[in-house]
Design a protein around this nucleic acid. Sequence first.
DNA 1: AGTGAAATGTTATATTATAACAAAACTGTA
DNA 2: TACAGTTTTGTTATAATATAACATTTCACT
Lengths: 151, 151
Amino acid sequence: MTDPTSLQTALAQAEQLCRVRGVRLTALRRRVLELVLSSDTPQGAYAILDTLRLQDGRAGAPPTVYRALDFLLEQGLIHRLASCNVFIGCCQPTAHHSGQFLICRSCGKVAELDSQEVEKLIRKQAQKAGFRVESQMVEIAGYCQQCQKQP
Amino acid sequence: MTDPTSLQTALAQAEQLCRVRGVRLTALRRRVLELVLSSDTPQGAYAILDTLRLQDGRAGAPPTVYRALDFLLEQGLIHRLASCNVFIGCCQPTAHHSGQFLICRSCGKVAELDSQEVEKLIRKQAQKAGFRVESQMVEIAGYCQQCQKQP
DNA sequence: AGTGAAATGTTATATTATAACAAAACTGTA
DNA sequence: TACAGTTTTGTTATAATATAACATTTCACT
């Protein structure tokens, strides 16, 4: 999400969501969300921390950013990619959904797949094995359309 | 994999596989594989390291175990669960396959799902989005059959 | 036995994440 | 407004996971 308009829209939507839920999107949390959303590629916690220190001049330590990230994860405003320890904005924050990610090995950009079909099939197959699914994590590595065209 | 017979079978199969491939399943690598396979629940690298030191009296440092784990991963003899930073033996080491795991939040045991259907559907949906899939990671958290019965 | 390559040992350090407690800011109420 | 309780943030320290770099040993092959 690079363009300023959709960034502002997403932030406004997040504020609305938090208001409705009765939770507080504080300045810090809002700023961390903004940093995650505005980056072209997913960011690690320490990269976010560095930005907070450099761009905002805020004296911060790891808990500062991890706590904000935890809040945003709980509210479904961001996702965490376990395979690379990075955080990415959620494309559909209103509907808590299971994460399905397409991670490009060349440019590092990540897209959400968000296929109901995949989610349902996984649930079905897991149930066949007697397993009760609570959460799904699908991380797909490969090459995005752009990068396939280039050498 | 708790029973000794299938452990021995799996180790023999691993040796056979490495022989065929012209790679060396050294004593250390074999021992690390044995530790991963014989555990009821997946093990972290440092837990494996501790066992090597305590049970084998081997003076080891992190690289000792990480290098062995890297080798075993490359050969498809074990998997890594990114969501919990642990390693687990592979149930089908002959066929390099994408990992699909059912992780029980109660007992910590992990089963492989290994559904071709799921893999194909993911591939299909990703292709629809113009994405070329190189590897898939599916980690499903929930409750296994045993733990659903108990309070 | 000798040589080059692969594996392991060893020390140090990078990266990611959390514990614990103090200080500040916010919320609701008298 | 002032107070009390709660939530959030600041701060220090440390835990947990992973790798870099180079020395030493072991192995495979001649």
